[in-house]
Design a protein around this nucleic acid. Sequence first.
RNA 1: GGCCCCAUCGUCUAGUCAGGUCCAGGACACCGGCCUUUCACGCCGACGACGCGGGUUCAAAUCCCGCUGGGGUCACCA
Length: 527
Amino acid sequence: MSIPTPRHPVRVRIAPSPTGDPHVGTAYIALFNLAFARQHGGQFVLRIEDTDQKRSTAASEAAILRSLGWCGLQWDEGPDVGGPYGPYRQSERATIYAEHADLLIAKGRAYRCFCTAERLDAMRAAQKAAGDDWRYDGHCRHLDAADSAARAAAGEAHVVRLAMPQDGETIVPDALRGEVRYENGRIDDQILLKSDGLPTYHLANVVDDHLMQITHVIRAEEWLNSTPKHLELYDAFGWEAPVFVHMPLLRNADRSKISKRKNPTSLEFYQRAGILPEAFLNFLGMLGFSMPDEAEFFDFEAFSAALDFGRISLGGPVFDLDRLQHINGLWIRAMAPDALAARFADYFREDGRDVHVARLVAERVGSLGDWPHHAGPFYGASVPYGADSRHLLVGCGSKKKKAVRLSARASKAFFEDVIARLEGLADFDEVAVEAALRESTEAAGVGVGDGFMAVRVALTGRTAAPGLFETIVAMGRALSLVRLRTAANWLAQSAPGQAELEALEREVAAYRDALAHAAAAAEGGAA
RNA sequence: GGCCCCAUCGUCUAGUCAGGUCCAGGACACCGGCCUUUCACGCCGACGACGCGGGUUCAAAUCCCGCUGGGGUCACCA
């Protein structure tokens, strides 16, 4: 099966929302879009969907562009490179959406809604109590047109809703699934324009896809259920709808939709972990898709040439780091030595990280040759935790003369707390990181020395390393969090039993005694 | 919970649309071995799946129905 390609030229897009770290799911969808565009000599558009003023940030947008660029998923049109259908940032297109919303109101396909949040909350509560779907009750749907316009003109707060048909059904022609049917009566009167005057995804997306001449919408399956609303919009505007292709969702190991709590989802992590972009795309290209000849080692060109949506598997694939690591090794080994050396050099120079690291490591190295040993923990995907680390993570056994620490209290919960606090930091600098860590140790009732040592071991696999806060900042948020998660999971998998805890306590006590005896003997000897 | 999607080894998948060549093939991981000063790479081997129940058929992993299971979605977020 091949998907319909009725209109030429083919134009596809990705439309990420700049509300967080660059996501692997964005790269996954971008890969299939770009490959499809290349296969048909079409265009690939990058559009920034930043209509959520509360959550969108310029930093996130910049990071998304940077990471997609790192992947090699280069767009033909976008906010940075421009193009004939700009602007490519939705926040700069507000008047376009407002005009289109007015058009729908004039056609009677949308209406202003003046309902308050309180009324909506009450309605939802009532519907929920009755066991019904949550759906807008149409309270403002039949307001007198002149009246509605007058209230809006007077400045009364309102939104604009889609006047969804009450009967019949909408058939979504999905290129991978065939016809998916929805009863119109169950579909909500979707808000199209928010009270801040900006559009919701649904309106902006449809308007832009039309205006930007998008022919194929290749997006994640999570959008399938809102496609009937989009189809209704196309119909209301009198526009021809694009071809819809809903790709399977990437999953965590437990099969839930991939999330940063359970997986490294930031592209920055993979870049920092030393994954080759070629290998990354190769890996993504095998999720939900297989090459006709079952090849498992291929580049973008081959993928693009072979891409066939008839070969998509609809079961959501688990994002398997082991397999990614394997593919990465294949790419590294296939690379010519000089090219590989250049990659290594680039990697260690990447976004100035080694400058940070050099500063931290300088005071510890005796010669240039010591660099790899001291700098090692700052690079790569993971640090190995062995039997020793277990001891270190659980017990924080920093066996220095004056500081016997074996609290046996650094738990998964402690690491989870650290993770949550670091995730929540607006500014990821040393001051903020230190404050967060101190809060965590306090909340956990763990000594600062014990707690910090546990974090140090989790991050570096060692007890001897540069200052903790500097280390975390130099390592970067993405990599730091992943290592903390790894440590937390590793601990949880083999949580110490009561017997083991007691053994640890005995070990500490014995060590303390030994130290005390040694001290006494030393004093006795001196006297 | 309603609606929607999905269902082959632990994981990614081939095979499913055009039923027989499939007592189901490959890859990752794991385990064992070989190679080797170590590790890694490489090589060899082992383990390992058509979710269940009906039906259609001479024949079902493949077609149909039901069940079960998993996922998504039900925001003035995308």
